[in-house]
């Protein structure tokens, strides 16, 4: 007797979002990247389509980082003061699918770089690499609201992924994305209700923008509540597959920032049982990333090239068709 194999059927899918724009599309990227489009839970190729592989964006700062431990610093030391060269190295040598450019120097407590300085850096990085770009500010809301407009304008046509719109401060980023035709990261604090509400707020500002939102559900590092992130992401994905249009977006996770701010990653002399910091930190970043892939992460922002290598191999394996 033939065994009937039970497969879940979902009635909807995650939106497919295109990042970057080629010359024909009004930008200068060598190619675009598509994320999302899933019609089943992560990597269950036998239940639906996983049309686009998750991608790894590598983090590039616009100034030499002060607090990166030597184990990861060594990969970038030669390019630390040149974001364009740094980005190029990430793409050419470390296989970054995208570059996440962080305008750390704009921080009023650091260099307080002007919008013009940031724009100059953006242009250099756009020239140096052909991959689509993600743009992050310095993390200080007031300053970020000042620089996002000029950055979006300078990148007009490139379909950058602009970070970050938050519930209490979504208009500057969303308006910039709307005006200069970029995509937008909608960030919510590990809260599915706010994630959904924020997408509604953005779509009320501009209906077409609904097609260009990537959700940042805020992730936690391994050991710091990753299970909360995991269940929020899982719930959002179930919502998307069951027809909730306001949660049917691809997701991005800021792995590098979360992992590398944790002592398990950066402490060189940790507990005696912790072992070698270099090995420990790369495993920490890779393990965090791999768990998030299983929860439906579409874009991972990462730092350590060794972790990137492991995760990209994992993505290759997970993208092998397992349908039957």
């Amino acid at each position: 007797m033939a065994v009937e194999i039970l497969k879940e059927k979902y009635r909807s899918s995650v939106r497919e979002v295109v990042l970057g724009a080629t010359k024909e599309e009004g930008g200068t990227r060598a190619h675009t990247i598509k994320v999302g489009g899933e019609t089943a839970l992560p990597f269950l190729h036998f239940e639906g389509k996983i049309p686009n592989r998750p991608v790894v964006a590598m983090e590039v700062l616009d100034m030499a980082p002060e607090d990166w431990p030597p184990s990861v610093k060594s990969f970038f030391e030669d390019v630390y003061n040149d974001p364009a060269a740094w980005a190029k190295k990430c793409v050419d040598e470390y296989g970054a699918d995208m570059i996440a450019l962080r305008f750390k120097s704009a921080d009023p407590d650091l260099k307080n770089a002007s919008a013009e300085d940031c724009v100059a850096t953006l242009k250099k990085v756009l020239e140096a690499v052909g991959v689509p770009l993600i743009i992050y500010g310095c993390g200080k809301t007031e300053k970020d609201n000042e620089i996002i407009g000029p950055l979006a304008e300078a990148g007009e046509g490139e379909n950058l992924l602009l970070g970050v719109a938050e519930q209490e401060n979504f208009k500057p980023v969303a308006s910039a994305a709307m005006a200069y035709k970029h995509s937008v990261i909608a960030q919510s604090p590990i809260d599915i209700n706010i994630a959904k509400q924020l997408n509604i707020l953005i779509s009320e500002l501009s209906t077409p923008l609904l097609e260009r939102i990537v959700i940042d559900p805020t992730i936690a590092a391994l050991g710091y509540g990753i299970e909360y992130s995991y269940s929020i992401m899982e719930r959002a994905r179930f919502g998307a597959l069951n027809g909730d249009r306001m949660l049917a977006m691809p997701m991005i996770g800021n792995v590098s920032q979360e992992v590398w701010s944790k002592k398990e990653a950066f402490l060189e002399e940790g507990e005696p049982t912790w072992g070698d910091q270099a090995e420990r930190s790369l495993a920490w970043e890779a393990a965090t990333s791999m768990a998030l892939l299983q929860a439906g992460m579409d874009i991972l922002v990462m730092r350590n090239p060794e972790s990137v290598k492991i995760v990209k191999k994992q993505i290759d394996d997970l993208m092998q068709d397992n349908s039957y």
Binding site: I192, N193, I194, K196, Q197, I200, R235, A236, G239, G243, D244, R245, M246, L247
Partner: peptide, 15 residues
């Protein structure tokens, strides 16, 4: 059956 958000009524209405 639906995930809560503050505008859930509008979301349902605009489905």
């Amino acid at each position: 059956m639906d995930i809560y958000c503050d505008s859930y009524v509008d979301v349902f209405r605009n489905q």
